[in-house]
C-alpha cells in the first residue's frame, strides 16, 4: 500500500472516505484531495490564488472536521479549489498555505463533514481515519 492515499468506502446514504498518511499534515492533504474527488470538482489552470489558514481545535478529529469544512466554505463562497498544500499540523493546530485556482465544475454537493465514528488512529505506517460526509 502507498504510504499516503484515500479510497471511497461503502455507505448506504452518504459518502465514506478512508484516508491514510504518515502524519497529520499528510492526512489533512489526502482528506482534502479525496473530498474534492468525491464531489467531482474540476479546476481551471488559472488564475492561481493562495490562502493561509490557521485553525485550532481541541483534538485531531475536530481539527480534521474544521479544516475540511473551511475548504467547503471557500469552495462554495469563492469557487476556489486547492491543489497545492503546504501544511504544518499538530494534534490541535494547523497552519496551512494553500494554492489553487477557480473550479470550473462541481458534480455533487457535500452538506457537511460529520463526526460519525470519526477516530484518527495510529497505525504502523502513520495515521488513518474514515470520514463520513453528509450528502
Amino acid at each position: 500500500m502507498e504510504p499516503t492515499g484515500f479510497e471511497e468506502h461503502r455507505h448506504t446514504a452518504d459518502w465514506a472516505l478512508r484516508v491514510w498518511a504518515p502524519d497529520m499534515a499528510g492526512l489533512l492533504e489526502q482528506a482534502a484531495r479525496g473530498m474534492y474527488l468525491l464531489m467531482g470538482v474540476e479546476r481551471r489552470d488559472e488564475p492561481r490564488a493562495e490562502r493561509e489558514l490557521e485553525i485550532s481545535a481541541p483534538d485531531p478529529e475536530s481539527l480534521l472536521v474544521s479544516f475540511l469544512s473551511e475548504l467547503l466554505f471557500i469552495l462554495e463562497q469563492e469557487y476556489l479549489v486547492f491543489d497545492s498544500f503546504d501544511i504544518e499540523a499538530g494534534t490541535s493546530h494547523v497552519s496551512a498555505r494553500l494554492g489553487g485556482a477557480p473550479c470550473s465544475a462541481i458534480a455533487k454537493e457535500i452538506k457537511a463533514v460529520t463526526y460519525h465514528k470519526l477516530n484518527v488512529q495510529e497505525t504502523s505506517q502513520g495515521l488513518e481515519v474514515t470520514i463520513v460526509f453528509d450528502v
Binding site: 448506504t12 446514504a13 460529520t114 463526526y115 460519525h116 463520513v132 453528509d134
Partner: peptide, 9 residues
C-alpha cells in the same frame, strides 16, 4: 430506515 451518521435515517 437506513444508515445515516450518528442517528439512523
Amino acid at each position: 430506515m437506513h444508515q445515516g451518521y450518528g442517528f439512523p435515517i
